[in-house]
């Protein structure tokens, strides 16, 4: 069983939700990435989504764009991200790490080399934003053969056929984008998410995480009522952005603890 599956199984057994925070590797500084990852875990994260910076993050809003730009200015690259994951694995062998990014850095490295290097570094899955299922069958197969999960997005506008497609090609969990637009955009429509979740959870037959637009403990709890996992990105990047360097790690841990506590108030399985 993969590390991701293990995490969801034990959470489900105890009726809890997965908390999946996102940070961009190399932001605000490469030497803070591994400490930030440990802080996320200490604060109560179950899985970490680690952003691989790209020069042209077309699907991201201003907050994650800025994180990406800072990371690139700090010399971050896919190769260096993998080295950071290795460092993290030196003292953490349980928390799954999912890389989130864009296709081009992976294609520049070469899919086979990427899969081998990511597997060796201790990566558990990859979410490549601009690889929809029909463009990445070979990539998804290679990842699975390397023991990693290809994670896919679904959106409020996804069709029944789309849901079946990602169920076939994806594994680990599905990431439901809870609003139209880019990461970090405004309003989250709880009613829409609640209405769509049962059909999607049943349709894909694997855990479903919801993200884009979750900004605090309260919105996390409300989403957690209906989903298996809650993904928080831009809000954590803002915490990093707004903290003095030497306090970023502590403030991020503190923020994640607040969300964890809210999620743990939820009773029973997702509705």
């Amino acid at each position: 069983m993969s590390r991701i599956q293990t995490v969801f199984q034990s959470l489900q057994a105890s009726g809890r939700r997965a908390l999946i925070p996102f940070i961009t590797a190399g932001d605000p500084a490469p030497e803070l990435t591994v400490p930030l990852m440990h802080a996320l875990v200490d604060g109560g994260a179950d899985i970490i989504e680690l952003g691989v910076p790209f020069s042209d993050p077309m699907a991201d809003g201003p907050t994650i764009q800025r994180a990406s730009e800072r990371a690139l200015l700090n010399g971050m690259s896919l190769r260096k991200v993998l080295a950071l994951v290795s460092d993290f694995r030196a003292t953490n062998s349980d928390t799954p790490v999912v890389l989130m990014g864009y296709a081009n850095p992976i294609e520049a490295m070469g899919v086979d080399r990427f899969v081998a290097a990511a597997g060796a570094a201790g990566v558990d899955g990859a979410l490549v934003v601009d690889y929809p299922p029909e463009e990445c069958e070979a990539f998804a197969r290679a990842l699975k053969a390397g023991g990693m999960d290809p994670i896919f997005l679904l959106a409020p506008t996804s069709t029944e056929q789309r849901i079946r497609e990602v169920a076939t090609i994806g594994s680990g969990y599905i990431y439901y984008v809870s609003l139209k637009g880019v990461t970090g955009s405004g309003a989250l429509d709880f009613n829409d998410v609640a209405a769509r979740m049962p059909q999607i959870r049943q349709g894909v037959g694997m855990p479903v995480g919801v993200g884009f637009g979750i900004r605090d403990a309260e919105s996390a709890r409300r989403i957690g009522e209906v989903a298996d996992a809650v993904v928080i990105g831009s809000r954590i990047i803002e915490e990093i952005e707004n903290s003095p360097r030497d306090q970023a790690v502590a403030r991020v841990k503190n923020f994640v603890e607040g969300v964890r506590a809210a999620l743990d108030q939820i009773q029973g399985a997702p509705r």
């Binding site: 020069s55 042209d56 077309m58 190769r79 864009y102 296709a103 081009n104 294609e107 520049a108 490295m109």
Partner: peptide
Amino acid sequence: GTPGVLHGNRTYLLQSDDGQII
């Protein structure tokens, strides 16, 4: 340039060794 993926399609791109657009 060399082939890669940008702006929704695969094509020739001007990019760094680690796949950032230059």
